[in-house]
């Protein structure tokens, strides 16, 4: 997982609440066999409308999504996070995220920032008035800064540390590789192995 310390980029103001994972990435995309290539499925239904904010030329290349409350509800599909990341988003701001979505996002290195709705409203106004306005999401200082807005946010210490260090669960486990080695060394010889019987002798 890529480490997240601080990120500055233009924003996409998404004035919608209760965006569920089916809207983020529809079910028929789940047949794919990769974690890549979900960008075209992101908000697929809405993107058919040329006026949808993501389709606007001034939003191309934006990396911070500023969404309404209850973002990421519904099915637990990890594909929703992958789709946002594939599209290029590094952080999502909302006043409330669904639990599983938030867990999945932090596991995958997509920073989900919870800010009060008034701050989200202020970010919407700012970035709608000036599409070139940049938003900084600073995980070190736990702060979002944009135009005249400065807002602190909370994130539990363990999740923050993992993001700052760029540690996914696997990376974390591998920090204890010596423990795994030691366990393997004391595993009894009668334990099963999938090595074909012919190759064993």
């Amino acid at each position: 997982m890529e480490a997240f310390t601080t990120h500055t980029g233009r924003a996409v103001p998404l004035r919608r609440g209760n965006v569920d994972t089916d809207q983020i990435i529809p079910a028929h995309w789940l047949k794919k066999v990769t974690r890549d290539g979900f960008e075209d499925g992101l908000f697929e239904a809405w993107r058919k409308d040329p006026e949808f904010v993501l389709n606007r030329p001034e939003r191309q290349g934006a990396t911070v999504l500023v969404a309404g409350p209850d973002f990421g509800t519904g099915s637990s599909r990890e594909h929703a996070v992958w789709a946002l990341q594939n599209y290029g988003f590094k952080a999502v701001v909302s006043s409330r995220f669904a639990d599983i979505f938030r867990g999945n996002s932090l596991k995958n290195g997509l920073l989900t920032v919870v800010l009060p709705q008034e701050t989200v409203d202020a970010l919407w106004r700012l970035t709608e008035a000036d599409p070139a306005a940049e938003v900084t999401v600073d995980l070190v200082a736990r702060q979002v800064r944009a135009g005249g807005i400065t807002a602190d946010f909370d994130l539990d210490e363990n999740a923050r540390w993992r993001l700052l260090e760029g540690l996914d669960d696997i990376g974390l486990t591998l920090r204890h590789e010596a423990d795994i080695d030691a366990f393997e060394a004391r595993r009894p010889p009668y334990k099963p192995s999938t090595t074909p019987a012919t190759a064993q002798s």
Binding site: T34, R35, D36, E78, D168, T194, T195
Partner: peptide, 21 residues
């Protein structure tokens, strides 16, 4: 598929091929 894809991206291998089938 996505699990193998993740390994590939991170440049990791399968730790115990002899316990995998």
């Amino acid at each position: 598929p996505q699990a193998f894809d993740g390994l590939r991206k991170a440049g990791r291998g399968v730790r115990r091929l002899d316990l995998t089938i």
